[in-house]
Design a protein around this nucleic acid. Structure first.
Lengths: 348, 348
DNA sequence: TCGATCCATTAAACCGGTTTAGCGATAATC
DNA sequence: GATTATCGCTAAACCGGTTTAATGGATCGA
């Protein structure tokens, strides 16, 4: 590949001039510019991205960090990615998806600074080691999701208000008359699971219901497909506790597992069992039988806001903390209704 | 940030030695290694990724190029991305998602070599300018999907056998007794659309059917949601040509639009209208009413194979051409059946 | 007409690593 | 015991750009 020196030689100017022609950071006469560009074209020259990054101390790349060992890209991530990409695209940034396991990065020969100007961290966990590591460096970060409390005042993040949202949802179900719940939550190590639990429990307490009125389960193994977890856990729990009339599921896929279990148990949705999901696929959710009631998390907007916030931090250089709350919208379809109690009705 | 010089000074060795400690490319005594690592830890030193890349002429990053202006990340891309990420992850590579519009990259001040060791090009189009550009550089590329003929013998690629697959599908529908088809194909500028058309037409000709026996439509606008296109085109075409008994749709989302149109037209699936889709979502497709018959394209495997092929090209340095064909599997559920003809039955 | 100002351009230093050539000390060879 | 390898390390060149300080020429004002 031709270098800047080749072009300088070919067009009879210094390399500094060639640099200025390409970076446009200093004015160069029309005539010289033309000559340099002609020589560059003839040699098929393009500035070397890494040399440029080294000298500029900037790459125009932002990172998206996810723990591939724990999480696979899901529908939610997909929308989120579309939002992030849109923001990058609009501002001329590239996106680096960093899914390397920490076991790899801990090896001495692979240790290195991240090749990005800033990073978005996905799916934060309680006491997430990635956050601690980034805080000691100088690469700005934005989380999507709430950081654990020890970091809450030290990093910027974008999130839904999961506590209030879950509280609202639970109130909605309480208002319909439900008194016994199965809550199939996200994996316990994720902060979002904790927020949802808090919102749920606060609504339960507010209604004066005892702990026996709910079963709160966390998805244990991230590898375990959501569908299977929804199916098996519903089957097992409802067999044991037939007084449960409402299931709150983590995702629409998990909700589908709940639907299957309800079918297996001979429970009609929503008459005998109400189902709610923390997601809303505008194409598929309406096609469930019956159409699934859930909540729109606006994943694409979460992604876009996070990317824009990060780019702002990068440009401003400002070490200001910001947090953006993206609103959620309940989408009520037909999978939740007043429970029709059996004859041997049970009141708590 | 501390540099290699700081560490060299602090541990009383030369920078070359520090470099060797981190790169492990040359043996360094236990004692010195320990001293250097201690100093590095104290200074919170990490080798600079850009400087290293510049000197090494290698980045351990591969690119995934898609035209964000034309295509949004879809379910298919999602699986594909999971495959690519898995392969990267396993071999310690990072993935750069490059969705920049060419209008941006054409500006002089943004012109630069790509910051990657190799690149995967998604959704190739007929006479795709991206391919021509990459061929003049020295970054190896792998396409996912067939390149247009002028490049077919110059680039490596991974693809399904779309011609044979579509031929097989069409034969299947012909075998069921269908004689009038609506084929809702991918956008015309994509090579995959051409392959599918060829496979379809070859089966049609093989059966001795005239051109009047089919309506072949290409999804015009990539921004137009698949669902809407499926719905509107089915409604319009079937109103005009009620003799059509089978619709072949590009994706499951589009198929869902077809389902809606069938409902609006009062056509029962599959008795009055058979629907087939070039996709298979193992979670949602079975949930369609009736469950959707389609074909599994193994997107994840396409992604993984492409990444592995690319990494092989990078490591080997070999300029060998390879092409990998990933097999497809028809998944027959209940959306295709023998057509039950109306009284005023029509034979071609 | 002379000094001040402005301008495009250049030479050299710099970004932070890797790598080559060489050097002294120890170990192996005959 | 002299010769040759081998080992662990260093100094300096190098990767391919950007940037600073300096330069020479044109323009300006008085």
């Amino acid at each position: 590949m031709a270098t800047i020196d080749d072009v300088a030689r070919a067009s009879g100017v210094s390399k500094g001039t060639v640099s200025s022609v390409f970076s446009k950071k200093r004015p160069i006469s029309q005539e010289v510019t033309a000559r340099v560009l002609a020589a560059a074209k003839a040699l098929n020259y393009k500035p070397n991205y890494w040399a440029r990054s080294l000298a500029n101390k900037s790459t125009r790349i932002i990172g998206l960090n996810l723990r591939a060992d724990k999480v696979k890209f899901s529908q939610f991530h997909l929308s989120l990615l579309n939002g992030v990409l849109g923001a990058c695209y609009a501002r001329g940034y590239r996106l680096l998806v960093n899914a390397l396991p920490s076991s790899f990065q801990d090896q001495v020969e692979h240790m290195a600074t991240d090749p990005v100007d800033g990073e978005i961290l996905l799916d934060p966990e309680t006491r997430d080691p990635r956050v601690a590591e980034r805080l000691s460096g100088e690469v700005p970060i934005v989380l999507i999701g709430r950081p654990s409390p020890e970091y809450e005042n030290r990093v910027s993040y974008v999130d839904n208000d999961n506590v209030a949202m879950t509280q609202q949802i639970t109130r909605y179900l309480l208002g319909l008359g439900h008194r016994h719940f199965l809550f199939l939550n996200a994996p316990k190590f994720r902060t979002v699971a904790d927020d949802r639990s808090r919102g749920f429990l606060s609504a339960i307490r507010e209604a004066g219901l005892p702990p026996s009125s709910y079963h709160l389960k966390y998805k244990p193994d991230p590898d375990n497909p959501s569908f299977d977890f929804g199916y098996e856990m519903t089957l097992a729990t409802l067999t044991e506790r037939p007084d449960i009339t409402a299931v709150i599921a983590d995702t629409d896929t998990m909700a589908l597992g709940v639907y299957k279990a309800a079918e297996a148990l001979g429970l009609a949705i929503p008459d005998k069992l109400s189902v709610f999901a923390f997601s809303d696929d505008s194409v598929f959710s309406p096609e469930f039988t019956p159409p699934l009631t859930g909540v729109r998390l606006h994943a694409e907007r979460l992604g876009r806001e996070a990317a824009e916030l990060l780019l702002e931090l990068i440009d401003g250089g400002a070490r200001t903390l910001k947090r953006t709350i993206v609103p959620t919208d309940m989408v009520i379809r037909s999978s939740c209704a007043e429970p029709i109690l059996n004859l041997g009705g049970n009141k708590s």
